[in-house]
């Protein structure tokens, strides 16, 4: 990675103006994937003086600052109570502690990485992203947004609703990317099914959800609907067929788990 200037923003407006100043300027969060990509930047904009690393327990939601680290997230008491701990568990599946102390929740979301455990782990829930300048969109809307969003992610709002979650990352070694990852939830009586790393960024399996939320109880059939609806591909880690087989099994197990 090549960088000409490292800039510490004094406010969100200051950071935003700097971001707009050149297409070669970028916000840095944890910076781990930036290193891996090895691109050149004119200016990296550091937001660490802006207090965006807090995790706050509000009445109806948990508000996670964009620069809260993955480790902060998984260790947060308030996060651990969300959906039987499933979102925290998903984040704990990422690499080791010395990695998660660098990687941030905001950076993990903004990159829309096809291998992301953080995105898959959060997508079943009612999650809104708060940007500067003032704008909110759901996590799902952001994943479907075309092109680069010229805005700064400030916080991630996770709604507190009674429910239970399940997360499974299939990987060949402890520090590997997922071959596939699955998040299933039952929130206020409604089933949610998400499959990621197919190897594409996580998506909801709407047909399976509709089937279950209309009262059907056949979890095997629901898992089949999920893999029929979502697309899967080959890559060097696994074949399309292997991913489909894994997803079918773990969607079913997830549904069994959250329905208990």
């Amino acid at each position: 990675m090549k960088v000409n200037e490292y800039y510490r923003a004094s406010s969100l407006e200051d950071a935003y103006q700097k971001l707009l100043a050149s297409p070669k300027n970028a916000i840095i969060a944890g910076g781990l994937w930036m290193k891996k990509m090895g691109q050149s930047y004119e200016t990296l904009i550091d937001l660490s003086n802006l207090g965006l690393d807090k995790i706050e327990d509000k009445k109806d939601e948990v508000v996670v600052g964009a620069l809260a680290t993955q480790r902060d997230f998984e260790n947060s008491k308030v996060v651990s109570f969300l959906y039987a701990g499933a979102p925290a568990f998903a984040v704990r599946e990422v690499m080791g502690v010395n990695f998660r102390n660098i990687a941030t929740i905001g950076g993990s979301i903004m990159g829309r990485y096809p291998f992301s455990d953080v995105i898959t782990g959060l997508l079943p829930y009612d999650v809104k992203l708060e940007f500067y300048p003032a704008q909110k969109m759901s996590l799902e809307e952001y994943l479907n947004y075309k092109g680069r969003l010229n805005a700064i992610l400030v916080a991630v709002h996770i709604k507190k609703i009674e429910g239970k979650g399940y997360f499974k990352k299939v990987k060949t070694t402890a520090l590997d990317f997922p071959i596939v990852n699955i998040a299933v939830a039952k929130v206020a009586g409604e089933y949610r099914v998400v499959v990621g790393a197919r190897p594409m960024v996580a998506a909801k399996a709407y047909k399976a959800m509709e089937y279950l939320n209309n009262g059907a109880k056949d979890f095997t059939k629901a898992a089949e609907l999920a893999v029929e609806e979502l697309s899967f591909m080959d890559n060097k880690d696994a074949s399309k067929e292997y991913r489909v087989d894994l997803a079918k099994v773990y969607v079913r197990r997830g549904l069994e788990e959250v329905s208990k």
């Binding site: 910076g31 660490s48 502690v97 010395n98 102390n101």
Partner: peptide, 20 residues
Amino acid sequence: TLLVDDKPVMSCSVLTASIE
């Protein structure tokens, strides 16, 4: 691995500019 503010991090992936 070393500690930044008592937390273990991989120093190959932390920009020195960020630890002011």
